[in-house]
Design a protein around this nucleic acid. Sequence first.
DNA 1: TCTGTAATGTTGCAACTGCAACAATACATA
DNA 2: TATGTATTGTTGCAGTTGCAACATTACAGA
Lengths: 209, 209
Amino acid sequence: MTKFFDNIDSKNKYKLLRSFKADTHNFKENEDITNIVFERNVIALLVSGSVNLIRNNENGNDFVLDKIEENNIISDVIYTINKDDYYLITTEETEIVTMNYSDVINYRGKNKYYPILIRNMFDIINSKAKLFNERINIMARRGIRNKLLAFFEIQFKKNNSRNIYLPFTFTEMADYLGVDRSAMTREMKLLKDEGFIKTTGKRITLLYK
Amino acid sequence: MTKFFDNIDSKNKYKLLRSFKADTHNFKENEDITNIVFERNVIALLVSGSVNLIRNNENGNDFVLDKIEENNIISDVIYTINKDDYYLITTEETEIVTMNYSDVINYRGKNKYYPILIRNMFDIINSKAKLFNERINIMARRGIRNKLLAFFEIQFKKNNSRNIYLPFTFTEMADYLGVDRSAMTREMKLLKDEGFIKTTGKRITLLYK
DNA sequence: TCTGTAATGTTGCAACTGCAACAATACATA
DNA sequence: TATGTATTGTTGCAGTTGCAACATTACAGA
């Protein structure tokens, strides 16, 4: 997975940040940075420290959706975020740099690492776009069963194995598919009963075709 | 909307294409180019001519989802495509250039327009990612009503107007939301009856809040 | 203007889904 | 290992949704 400053040395990294008139924000542990990061048209970069992306269930059962580490981009483009449902909390002392998207994209300076930076960004966004794309294709199916099967199909093609190891919990998977968890469990049980799949913990084995 | 070769003159455009060992494909009118374009890891570029992205309804009611014009990217990243449901047909004599993604991204040549190219690509993908993101946020809502309201909300914020002019047909809108068209119509009627919205042709007026 | 095609409106119905609530496990960490 | 917390399993139920089928209206090309 490409990171923002891959192949750019530290000196030039800071030079570039200066050219973009990047704003540096420093936080202690446990600060909410949602509003700083999810400004419109802002690219935020986690320079040091670490941040949790948390889902805010109204019943108070929050949970960590993603741990974001150094050199990764956090921005409204990257995460499928609804400010009401999610928030971002630092888990240690953290430095975040925010840049204006237009400043970055319209940079006309001479730093020879700029192209590398843009290439890195392109690669990052591109992978995200592919993942988004994938998820849309799944969510667009009608009915939970079809969503599940579409999801399995993609995992199957990716790993070329009938054994799928879930990269997240079933709770998160229901969220990923955009369906109710209990309804999803019910449908999974039907698929099992009908002999389409078999599950062992977080491993799902496809028995069909 | 940024295009692939924005700010790159024709001479350098072809130089770059050569560096990428790009493959040129020529088609007559009415040829199916789905398989050439939606290869894995391929970026396809419409150099000249025009292509229709068509949705393939099993009942034989195909329809044009998008007309792709010169200098646009056509690739599996850009379009949320399921090969079974969609296909691409040239509508005139058309030249398409395919490049391997890795070749483009790992280019280490000296052409000074390369950075511009990558920047263009970044901008293109970035807008797409934003749109994908938006759609996911809508589709993730439970129930047709919530999807509709989420959609309206986004349009409202975008245009800062309570009047939403649908950029597509209701049939396509149902598809966009990932729900059954008739069920969507039914829900819209309820929203109307309850006084939340008003519709006039493709204009929807929000009456709430 | 006519005509065929696509889009929209509508409805019944069976099946599905979300929701709520609770039980049973699994998991992490003190 | 014990204990609290998160995840998973399960179920009833009402309301929602997808599907199929058909009527009506809008629209574009001859």
